[in-house]
């Protein structure tokens, strides 16, 4: 058994500050991967207006990086992926500390607080909390945090379906493409499509969200990702939904086992401001 004094202790203050700085960084600096995707879109877009809009999207993130103005005024719900090393010892409530870090980051970074008390009490909490926190216990003595602000417009464009098993793989492809066709134009395209299938409804939705963090082709489902990407980029709504080839920047799938009676599929749409920042302590 590991003795207590061999475990690494993490200070609350350090964790709060890390979360705050990740919230600010995510909202001001677009990840390298996303910048490369936008360059790809600029090269491959065929409509002159679409090309112009993509170049403005690129100009926008450069302005944000230089001035401290947020990439998008919708600074999102703060979705935080927490990877906690099993050898870390905490003498404080980490969820409360993350919440305090989000409040600090959104206030100090002049980021828009977009969180309401509830669906029915629609008063702003003014702190952009509660945050959404997903935890995974991993090896090691570190805590790794990824803050990925999620805007409301593209979240509204997302869908989940409990398909019938007989619908098969084609049923999944059809549902994803239908979701992108119907909801993509108002979700600030070119969008990224995160797909989760299998599990229960909550597991399936979480897989779709996690798929949005992926930067590589799935080993098992890479062909399906490419097939859906191509179908989506034949839909023609293009940048800002105003017509063009590049409606979707990329498609990522995560899958897990499912019940013999079910075929859950979740589609999480991400706008072109695909923001995230990762740090460890």
């Amino acid at each position: 058994m590991l003795s207590f004094d061999l475990m690494k202790s993490i200070k609350r203050e350090g964790l709060v500050d890390l979360v705050a700085s990740l919230c600010i960084k995510a909202n001001l600096v677009l990840p390298k991967y996303q910048k490369e995707k936008l360059e790809w879109a600029l090269e491959n877009e065929t409509s002159p207006l679409g090309k112009k809009l993509i170049s403005q999207i690129i100009e926008n993130y450069k302005i944000a990086e230089k001035t401290g103005l947020a990439i998008c005024q919708d600074c999102g719900l703060a979705v935080v992926f927490l990877e906690a090393g099993r050898d870390v010892h905490l003498d404080f409530d980490i969820y409360e500390a993350i919440k305090d870090g989000v409040a600090k980051g959104y206030s100090e970074g002049h980021l828009r607080p977009s969180v309401l008390h509830s669906c029915v009490d629609r008063t702003n909490t003014k702190t952009n909390t509660p945050a959404i926190i997903h935890t995974q216990i991993v090896d090691g003595d570190k805590i790794t945090l990824t803050v990925t602000p999620k805007g409301g417009g593209s979240e509204n464009a997302s869908r989940l379906a409990m398909l019938k098993p007989y619908e098969g793989k084609q049923g999944i492809v059809d549902f994803v493409v239908k979701t992108v066709r119907e909801n993509g134009p108002s979700a600030c395209p070119p969008v990224t499509v995160g797909i989760g299938f299998g599990g229960t409804i909550e597991e399936c939705a979480l897989l779709a969200k996690k798929a949005l963090l992926a930067e590589n082709r799935s080993e098992e489902l890479g062909d399906m990702e490419k097939e859906i990407l191509e179908l989506c980029n034949n839909l023609g709504f293009g940048p800002a939904g105003l017509g063009g080839k590049i409606s979707v920047l990329d498609v990522h799938i995560l899958s897990t086992g499912c019940h013999i009676a079910t075929m859950p599929v979740a589609v999480n749409i991400q706008c072109h401001a695909a923001r995230k920042a990762t740090g460890e302590i």
């Binding site: 403005q56 999207i57 302005i63 001035t67 103005l69 828009r112 607080p113 600030c188």
Partner: peptide, 28 residues
Amino acid sequence: VALGGAGALLAKKVKKAKLLAFPELGPE
């Protein structure tokens, strides 16, 4: 329509801003 997700670029076109009504709504 203005370009969604280009909030920093569009902010540069705003010269002055004044809160007119419903301050309790915050950003709304």
